[in-house]
């Protein structure tokens, strides 16, 4: 009996071994092998609303780089809340370049990860912010709640959608724009803090990124007003077709400067420093500026800006440096552990 079984046992073994080998081979064939040496790959780690912008820009840059350097370059994209993305890069996400929502999130790559030099912001023109934006309101069509300015957001029964300032760059711009308006209106920080407290009492959900908030407002139909990047607000009105939501421009807003940087340590390891630098520099070229303007970012280039001038409302814009003494100070005062945001925000109210 057992002699026959011995044969069967080895058959079992062979079947099992074959199945295991087949699984491994199949799995191996499904995972894309590393790109061939001749092809250069860049990873651009960006924030939430830039997906459409970089989709188009990557194609344009690949074409430009092929002409200039004769090299094929593939650009990979990763998007999420700006603060979360910075955290991932520090934890080892192999970004050759970062294009984040604000300077502080890039600066943590120096402060906490030592991945970029201290003076990164002066390596490219305009504080390393190739395009700017601002914060506007998006309301339901016909503006049923009659929202015209920041003061309308704290009225009872108005539901405000904004992301979480701890993880989202756009949310921090929202918060600081509101604070700046209140300080100008009431004259001091105590009153501004009071205003912000009331504002966040009217915020039922805090998504982790700007795109999540847009989806909450537009797709799930939650809330009366969305505090949004200007470019995101334009995109939402365009994507939904005219007539479902409309943009309201407040009396005061903030000049948002999304910053970009080559992640030196990673790019050096990948041998991609030159192409990564060119990738960011091309953002300042007329072509790059044109693409940014097309996606509703405010271009830096005066000629491109003049051509798209009618697209952007003329808002009184305060700056982070002038109003809050720079990002490091603003971050420490407002968004760090125990900062004003932690003091005023009580979830679930």
């Amino acid at each position: 009996m057992f002699s026959r079984k011995k044969n069967l046992t080895s058959t079992h073994w062979r079947t099992a071994a074959n199945a295991a080998i087949a699984a491994v081979v199949l799995a191996g064939s499904l995972v894309d092998p590393r790109p061939a040496v001749s092809e250069t790959t860049l990873l651009n780690v960006s924030y939430d609303p830039t997906r459409e912008l970089y989709q188009e820009y990557n194609v344009a840059f690949a074409k430009y780089w092929k002409q200039k350097a004769g090299e094929d370059v593939t650009i990979q994209q990763s998007h999420g809340g700006s603060g979360k993305q910075a955290r991932s890069v520090i934890d080892g996400l192999e970004a050759d370049v970062v294009t984040l929502a604000l300077a502080y999130d890039v600066d943590v790559l120096y402060q906490k990860g030592n991945l970029i030099p201290k003076g990164w912001q002066s390596e490219l023109p305009n504080n390393s912010a190739p395009y700017t934006s601002t914060i506007v309101f998006l309301v339901r069509s016909g503006n049923p709640k009659g929202i015209k300015d920041w003061s309308d957001l704290v009225k009872p029964g108005v539901s405000v959608i904004t992301p979480n300032p701890k993880t989202s760059g756009g949310a921090r711009w929202n918060y600081l724009a509101a604070w700046a308006w209140a300080r100008h209106k009431y004259g001091n920080d105590t009153a501004a803090k009071d205003f912000i407290t009331k504002l966040y009492k009217n915020a039922p959900v805090l998504d982790s990124g700007a795109r999540g908030s847009t989806t909450t407002f537009v797709e799930r139909g939650i809330g009366d007003v969305l505090l949004a990047w200007e470019n995101e607000a334009f995109l939402a009105t365009k994507e939904l077709g005219e007539g479902k939501v409309e943009i309201v421009v407040p009396s005061i807003s903030i000049l948002a400067e999304p910053s970009v940087a080559v992640v030196g340590k990673v790019a050096q390891r990948h041998g991609t420093v030159a192409v990564a630098k060119a990738y960011l520099e091309y953002l300042y070229s007329p072509e790059g500026q044109e693409i940014a303007a097309k996606h509703y970012y405010r271009p830096r280039n005066p000629e491109v800006a003049a051509r798209y001038a009618s697209q952007f409302a003329n808002v009184n814009l305060v700056t982070i440096d002038g109003e809050f003494g720079g990002w490091n100070k603003a971050q420490a005062e407002h968004f760090a552990d125990g900062g004003t945001f932690d003091q005023i925000y009580v979830p679930g109210r």
């Binding site: 699984a23 491994v24 799995a27 191996g28 499904l30 995972v31 894309d32």
Partner: peptide
């Protein structure tokens, strides 16, 4: 493909 590969491993 990635999903299937991960499951296969």
């Amino acid at each position: 493909k990635l999903t299937l590969a991960v499951a296969l491993i």
